[in-house]
Computed example of a mutant assay.
Amino acid sequence: MTESIPRRPLSRALRQAGIAVAVIAVPLLLGTLLMAVSVNDGGSRRDRAALDLRSIQGALLIHQEQHRRLPTETEGLRLLVEHRALEVLPLDPWHNAYEYTVRDGQVQLRSLGADGDLGGDGNDADLELTFSVAAAPEAGPTP
């Protein structure tokens, strides 16, 4: 006599095969994703720093419009938070303060990059945003 092998329903077999694939594929995909993120981390940090610089620039221009002047270098960017042009003063992605200078109608905002020092190459390179600002109009008689 021949013995018959018990058969599993096809849906149960497919479900078990799907679970086996998921157990193998999910960790593999997560590992690949983590590797891609770590490889691109320098670029994404530089992108975030560039966005922060633009945000600070916007806050400086709003502050100048509302108060008819820019913060002095001594007052620094913290004045933007005190006057509510920024909710919080961001640090660069490497946890350093952004630098702020004003010279002859030019504002320079800077992140010193991953190494925290002037200059550098690649992720260590500084990110700078320089823009002109109009001189505040002189106070005249009000009508």
Rank of each mutant, 00 (worst) to 15 (best):
Met1Asp: 15
Thr2Cys: 09
Thr2Gly: 14
Ile5Ser: 12
Arg7Leu: 09
Leu10Thr: 14
Leu10Tyr: 11
Leu10His: 09
Arg12Gln: 15
Arg12Pro: 01
Leu14Gln: 10
Arg15Gly: 15
Arg15Phe: 11
Gln16Leu: 10
Gly18Ile: 09
Val21Pro: 01
Ala25Asp: 08
Val26Thr: 15
Pro27Glu: 11
Pro27Ser: 11
Pro27His: 12
Pro27Cys: 11
Leu28Ile: 11
Leu29Gly: 08
Leu29Arg: 05
Leu33Tyr: 05
Leu34Gly: 13
Leu34Met: 12
Leu34Ala: 13
Leu34Tyr: 10
Met35Trp: 08
Ala36Gly: 12
Ser38Arg: 10
Val39Lys: 04
Asn40Phe: 09
Asn40Leu: 11
Asp41Ile: 03
Ser44His: 09
Arg45Asn: 08
Arg45Phe: 03
Arg45Ser: 06
Asp47Leu: 08
Ala49Ser: 09
Ala50Ile: 05
Ala50Trp: 01
Leu51Ile: 03
Asp52Ile: 12
Asp52Leu: 06
Leu53Ile: 09
Leu53Ser: 11
Leu53Met: 10
Arg54Asp: 07
Ser55Val: 10
Gln57Thr: 05
Gln57Pro: 06
Leu60Tyr: 05
Leu61Tyr: 01
His63Glu: 07
His63Gln: 04
His63Ser: 10
Gln64Thr: 02
Gln64Val: 01
Glu65Phe: 04
Gln66Leu: 05
His67Leu: 12
Arg69Trp: 02
Arg69Pro: 05
Leu70Cys: 02
Thr72Gln: 11
Thr72Ala: 07
Glu73Phe: 07
Glu73Val: 15
Thr74Asp: 12
Thr74Lys: 13
Glu75Asp: 13
Gly76Ile: 02
Leu79Val: 12
Leu79Trp: 02
Glu82Thr: 14
His83Ser: 14
His83Gln: 14
His83Asp: 12
His83Trp: 04
Arg84Ser: 04
Arg84Asp: 07
Ala85Met: 04
Ala85Ser: 13
Ala85Tyr: 01
Leu86Glu: 05
Glu87Cys: 00
Glu87Thr: 15
Leu89Ser: 06
Leu89Glu: 08
Asp92Val: 09
Asp92Lys: 06
Pro93Asn: 02
His95Tyr: 02
Asn96Thr: 01
Tyr98Gly: 06
Glu99Leu: 15
Glu99Ala: 13
Tyr100Pro: 03
Tyr100Ser: 07
Val102Lys: 07
Arg103Trp: 00
Arg103Leu: 10
Val107Thr: 06
Gln108Trp: 05
Gln108Ser: 13
Leu109Asn: 08
Arg110Gln: 12
Arg110Phe: 04
Ser111Ile: 12
Ser111Met: 10
Leu112Ser: 07
Ala114Arg: 14
Ala114Thr: 01
Gly116Ile: 08
Gly116Thr: 10
Asp117Ile: 07
Asp117Met: 14
Leu118Ile: 11
Gly119Cys: 02
Gly119Lys: 06
Gly120Gln: 03
Asp121Met: 08
Asp121Ile: 13
Asp121Gln: 14
Asp124Arg: 11
Ala125Thr: 07
Leu129Ser: 08
Leu129Pro: 12
Thr130Tyr: 01
Phe131Asn: 03
Val133Ile: 09
Val133His: 05
Val133Cys: 04
Pro137Asn: 03
Pro137His: 01
Glu138Arg: 11
Gly140Asn: 01
Gly140Phe: 02
Gly140Lys: 03
Pro141Asn: 01
Pro141Phe: 09
